[in-house]
Write a protein that binds this DNA or RNA. Structure first.
Lengths: 124, 124
DNA sequence: GTATGAACAGCTTGTTCATGG
DNA sequence: CCATGAACAAGCTGTTCATAC
């Protein structure tokens, strides 16, 4: 009775989108959860997109389960006691991350094409 | 306890996307449910998107509830008995539809910008 | 088999709660 | 207050069932 469902292939999901950004941000700079959320919200604010904290944490946890990232618990800079969770690539993780990014590039190109088609088909 | 949830403003939903196409197709040519589905599937097939029949019906029903479209039950061309449901704009519907399309144009532009930003941010 | 529609079930995601510093 | 995480619940969407021709 419980079958797995095949997605119709509409636009990509928020979770995948966030995972892509989290990989790229990890390549650039080591940050922790809520700080990543801040950065993302600021980046997307002009685009009317405001992710919530749970989605970011779940995306990070997904990347851990896939063996791409691992946690590093550290004291927050300047704080004596506040411990926060930073992320870095695992041994195998960077290679896996590059593969994931290549897949997402294809997916983003597809979505862009779909949206451009809709603009063309409905507004020309 | 049951609050309405505020969307985070990620990409537009499939339902809205289909409603836009159904309005435009109704402007161009009068068709019925499953035929509209055929047309849409053929259009999107190169883009890996294959909507299912329920989503198309639900989108049509939404447009009826919003007072944009109405049903016209007719015999299928060449068929004596097979009755199918065609759609046309209501009296007020065409004006409402143009408003909806203007809103969707803004939304599609926003989504395109978001995707282009993601490509730029993650693949440059 | 084609067509329409509703009911159901699974997936996605936003809100709330719990714990700790 | 900030930070992390899990539990919960609402919303979206794919599959199945029912009805009719």
């Amino acid at each position: 009775m419980s079958e797995k469902r095949k997605p119709s292939g509409f636009l990509l999901k928020q979770r995948a989108f966030l995972k892509l950004y989290l990989i790229t941000l990890t390549e650039q700079e080591r940050l922790y959860g809520l700080k990543l959320l801040d950065v993302l919200r600021e980046e997307f604010q002009p685009f009317g997109y405001r992710p919530n904290h749970s989605e970011v944490y779940k995306a990070l946890h997904d990347l851990i389960e896939e063996g791409i990232l691992e946690q590093v618990k550290k004291k927050k800079e300047g704080m004596k006691y506040q411990e926060v969770v930073y992320y870095r690539f695992t041994e195998e993780g960077y290679k896996k991350a590059q593969l994931y990014k290549r897949q997402l590039k294809t997916e983003l190109d597809r979505c862009e094409a779909l949206i451009r088609k809709a603009i063309k088909d409905n507004f020309s």
